[in-house]
């Protein structure tokens, strides 16, 4: 649903941006359920390396993905600014662990440019496009691809 609105309208879209290392990324705010700071993470042995573990989100078990590792960047370093971005996908909630939350950026869909096939070490399929901000480029993430198991 979110994707449709994004593609058909040229209205303002809001992107929540966040840091992974020195890079800045954004997720359409409509895809985010909440952002929290729950780090009572239970590790799951034998899971993929980008799985940080699972947490209890008000009685639901939520898988936490280390977004740094998932994108092929450095793993998220333990830090007081760490946050989980909780998104809803295919009847479950999934948390994305990021280094720090940044601003909310407003942009029109046609402002998003096609991402170069290879930004740094990030695989192109994880990026929906790139948004030019005043200071920095923001990688807009393709959530469907990232949340695939």
């Amino acid at each position: 649903m979110t994707e449709n609105t994004m593609e058909t309208s040229s209205a303002d879209n809001a992107f929540s941006t966040f840091h992974l290392g020195t890079s800045l990324f954004g997720i359409n705010i409509l895809e985010i359920q909440e952002i929290n700071k729950n780090f009572e993470i239970t590790q799951v042995p034998h899971a993929s390396d980008y799985i940080k573990g699972i947490i209890n989100l008000r009685g639901q078990i939520v898988t936490i993905i280390d977004l740094g590792r998932k994108l092929g960047l450095n793993p998220v370093q333990k830090n007081k600014d760490n946050k989980n971005i909780i998104v809803h996908s295919e009847n479950e909630h999934i948390g994305l662990l990021v280094d720090a939350i940044h601003d909310v950026v407003h942009a029109k869909i046609h402002d998003i440019e096609t991402a170069p096939s290879n930004i740094g070490e990030i695989k192109g399929k994880y990026l929906q496009g790139v948004l030019k901000n005043k200071k920095q480029l923001i990688g807009i993430l393709n959530m469907t691809e990232i949340l695939k198991d």
Binding site: T63, I94, D149
Partner: peptide
């Protein structure tokens, strides 16, 4: 558990 952990 979530779908990412089906293989655990």
């Amino acid at each position: 558990m979530g779908r990412h952990l089906k293989r655990s």
